[in-house]
């Protein structure tokens, strides 16, 4: 199964995009949570403040389906 992770800022650097400036393609075996996927690619989920999928808020337990794009937002640099 292929999913796409998108991020900017510090998260983008950790994500190591390979599709475009912000996006990384990730191949996963079977159903996994976003927390598990991030762990597999060595991205610390503590730096994820918000997860957006199809315009809806999700959390780290969300299990994406094939082809989905998951947008990860880092924390605001001071409110």
């Amino acid at each position: 199964m292929i999913i796409y992770l998108r991020a900017g800022g510090q998260l983008r650097e950790k994500l190591k995009p390979d599709v475009d400036h912000y996006t990384r393609k990730v191949e996963i075996d079977g159903e996994k949570t976003i927390a598990e996927i991030l762990k597999d690619i060595s991205v610390d989920s503590a730096f994820v403040a918000l997860i957006h999928v199809d315009g809806k808020l999700k959390d780290l337990s969300f299990k994406p389906s094939d082809g989905q794009t998951i947008t990860l937002q880092p924390p605001v640099s001071g409110g």
Binding site: R6, A7, G8, R12, Y22, H52, T71, Q73
Partner: peptide, 8 residues
Amino acid sequence: THPNMAPW
């Protein structure tokens, strides 16, 4: 198209 824009 920045990923932060829409949530922001």
